[in-house]
Amino acid sequence: MSGHLPADDLAVLALDDPDLDGPESAPVRAHLAECADCRAEFDGIARLGRRGRAAGELVGTGLTAPPPELWARVAAGAGVEAASLVQPAPARPQPVAPAAAAPVPPAAPAQPRARPQAPTPPPARPSVRLLPRLALAAAAGVVVGIGATLVGAGLLDDDGPADPVATAPPADSVLARTELAPLPRQNTSGAAELRTSGKVRHLDVDLSAVDTGDGFVQVWLFDPETLGMVSVGVLEGDSGSFVIPRGLDLETYRGVDISLEPYDGNPEHAASSLARGVLRSA
């Protein structure tokens, strides 16, 4: 065997058979014994796979939470007041009325701090001091109402009676929007707005702190349920507007993902998202 093994094959083997004791792995084992480059590549991936699986073994089968009463002991030991920490989750996410679809859940009015050392607030009730951060960090949780808005605007209902005069919204009305929150270790943030002029839908994206380095920025829509993704275009500079294909169901593809792509000729998502958000009806 001369030259190096294909990188794809090395990666597959390093993950699927890191000990190379499968019957088909013998020739690879022989090559790796002689080729330091391939050996290093193989070992690196095998080690990564072992770490990933070990981590998955720890957390992947479910973590064991401490009993709820432990928090009171922690709070007492730390000298903070133990406001109720563990709240039973509702069986189903409560629908949020579109008019109330704000970053802060409607059931969680901001509470003024009564005194300098306020007790630890219950988890779903951010204190007033959080609010500036919320504006930056808000990523949508429960998304409702977009579909209704779009249908109401006559944009989803292609098969229904076409009556542009009655159903078309005013020119350039905003149907939905979202903050684009930076992903961990990223600085890029911004906002996206779904706008319609007549029957053409546009996604307007406005970003700040974009550092493209040697790559470029690509805008995607994704479906949080099926994980499908659609690229809607390349963003040059900090802001841009993208025409959304008429047939694209935005009730489904309601997530907005901003990724940094290398010039590698590979049209897939490069696994390097900068910011994300989920459209909510405006």
Binding site: Q87, A91, P93, A124, P126, L134, A139
Partner: peptide
Amino acid sequence: PRGGTLSSDTAPAITGLDDLVGD
């Protein structure tokens, strides 16, 4: 926690600040 003290029908909804405050 999965498979812990919570039964599966009390599936996670938004119970904290995950969506609002990053790590």
